[in-house]
């Protein structure tokens, strides 16, 4: 297991350096000169992305992983690469969709306001669930993410998604609202995504209206999504 090992390395380091080890989440300085390190190795990436193609038929299961390994020419046993099994598949989906978000969306008019951009980003991210065909299986993923072991990583990923959305929307506030903005967006996104899994309407109209109601609530509560949502948050 990794946690006793991690604890041992933590206890072996000098006390002054321990806090640095505890911040394991991500090195946050975002550099423009240097390319970002890839999150997944080549082999992991190919296996997981071909496994995702099997999710609509087989769900987020070990079987999908095995079929993905087979498709990309690896042995069945290579799925042992993924210690957390199906959760690694779920996480790969989340990470790849988060990082792909910037290429999925382009704002033709840069002056439409941060609030509207955030709304567009949420809808685009939800549309990715439909395009990849995993929306019918997403409840399984939510169940896997809600297991006690997986909750911290899932929440971190949700936070990273909210951070990415605010960044892509061009939000530049760096005061206390940095935290409230990310927290409220995470809440709205999680709620909307759960709603989406039960939505039976054409082209997910109900999800869109649900999202607009949540954003409207936020606006009335504290103006957290400020400057841009006004009057344009009704459904198209």
């Amino acid at each position: 297991m990794s946690s006793p090992m991690a604890l041992r390395t933590l206890l072996r380091t000098p006390p002054a350096l321990r806090p640095l080890l505890l911040q394991t989440s991500r090195a946050a300085y975002h550099s423009y000169d240097h390319a970002e390190q890839p999150v997944y190795r080549e082999a992991e990436r190919t296996i997981l992305s071909s496994a995702l193609a099997h999710v609509p038929t087989h769900g987020f299961t070990q079987e999908a992983l095995t079929l993905g390994a087979k498709d990309s020419g690896y042995l069945d046993v290579s799925t042992n690469l993924f210690r957390k099994g199906t959760f690694d598949l779920v996480k790969y989906y989340l990470v790849s969709q988060r990082m792909g978000l910037k290429d999925r969306i382009q704002f033709p008019d840069e002056n439409i306001g941060v609030g509207r951009k955030v709304r567009g980003l949420i809808l685009e991210r939800l549309r990715a669930n439909v395009d990849t065909g995993i929306v019918t299986r997403w409840q399984e993923a939510l169940a896997i993410m809600s297991l006690a072991d997986n909750i911290p990583a899932s929440l971190r990923e949700l936070g990273a998604l909210a951070d990415e959305m605010w960044f892509l929307a061009g939000d530049t506030s760096v005061d206390s609202s940095w935290y409230t903005k990310r927290a409220s967006l995470s809440g709205v996104y999680a709620a909307t995504e759960i709603f989406q899994t039960t939505d039976q309407s054409t082209e997910f109209r109900d999800t869109e209206q649900f999202l607009d109601r949540r954003l409207e609530e936020l606006r009335t509560v504290g103006g957290t999504v400020s400057g841009g949502c006004t009057g344009e948050s009704t459904a198209e």
């Binding site: 946050a28 975002h30 423009y32 951070d163 939000d171 530049t172 760096v174 206390s176 940095w178 935290y179």
Partner: peptide, 17 residues
């Protein structure tokens, strides 16, 4: 520094208030 934090996507301190 406001500009640099936003540009490099660095979290402001939680002790801000």
């Amino acid at each position: 520094f406001n500009h640099l934090l936003a540009k490099h996507r660095i979290r402001p301190t939680a002790m801000y208030p």
